[in-house]
Amino acid sequence: MPRLNRDRILAVAVLTPSVAAVGIFVYGFIGWTVYVSLSQWNSFVPDLSFAGLQNYGTLFATVRFQADLRNTLIFTVTFLAACLLIGFLLAVLLDQRVRGESLFRNIFLFPMAISFIVTGTAWQWLLNPSTGVNLLFESLGLGALRSPWYTEPRTAIFSVVLAATWQLSGFTMAMYLAGLRGIPEELMEAARMDGASEWQLYRHVIVPLLHPVTLSAVIVLGHISLKIFDLVFAMTGSGPAFSTDVPGVFMFETTFRGNRFAEGAGIAVIMLALVAVLIVPYLWYGTRTAAEA
């Protein structure tokens, strides 16, 4: 057999275990989850008889799940906005030939190395209304900044946004900084020569050039926030009146505490659909352009 053909076969053979594993553990399991979500398995003993869309109907009629979807939307939008704004601001500031740049950069980034569980534990203490930062504000004479934080149902979700932004805004900072450093100096000089002010330079040259970076950040942070679980679980749980509840927490409690497997599977399928809406076009577009390049 010619060497090239033998190598072709070998290539496929080497890939096969990984492809098979992902095929089963991702696509096979998703298929099974969909199947469970259409069954009557809502007690400790498996019952896979067909129930149609009944579980989905129950879910969408449940106050808790409605709150989950609302919270996910609010969380995703505010968290993304905060990370993009803070990340961009910090990147621009660091790009001003700052002394101690790497120190600042490391301080902004280190939370990314930490587990959401640690973050949740820490911020649960910090935002406890009777201790935490409220105490600090008082001792600094800033008592007006006191807040009920995650105990006030209307605004509790923003406490979680705060903790999540603490953890992940360094990521957008790093991406924007890499993007800024990738913009050719000549381009900026040319704009300055044309008499552009710094504001116009950023508004009309730099920000548009950074659009691909923004898109990447939105995809990465967006899919994290759509499936967020650990941080909420460790920090607030589902919160007063489900004000900090998210589908991930509801799925976990429904399935593994309440033994309502079919409903839990239904929540999981909806989470998957939300993430897919964001990810599939990106993957499709991304890999196609990569193939053309």
Binding site: D7, R8, A11, V12, L15, S18, V19, V22, F25, V26, Y27, G28, F29, I30, W32, T33, V36, H223, L226, K227, F229, P247, G248, M251, F252, T255, F261, G264, A265, I267, A268, V269, M271, L272, V275, I279, V280, L283, W284, G286, T287, A291
Partner: peptide, 29 residues
């Protein structure tokens, strides 16, 4: 380096696995 037919389809399918919410595989897992 050893592109074969279908590799361009296989790759995004593989990548999708890193974005899924793992809740969607927990019960069968």
């Amino acid at each position: 380096k050893w592109k074969f037919r279908g590799a361009d389809l296989l790759f995004p399918l593989l990548l999708f696995g890193m974005f899924i919410p793992y809740q969607s595989v927990l019960i069968p897992l």
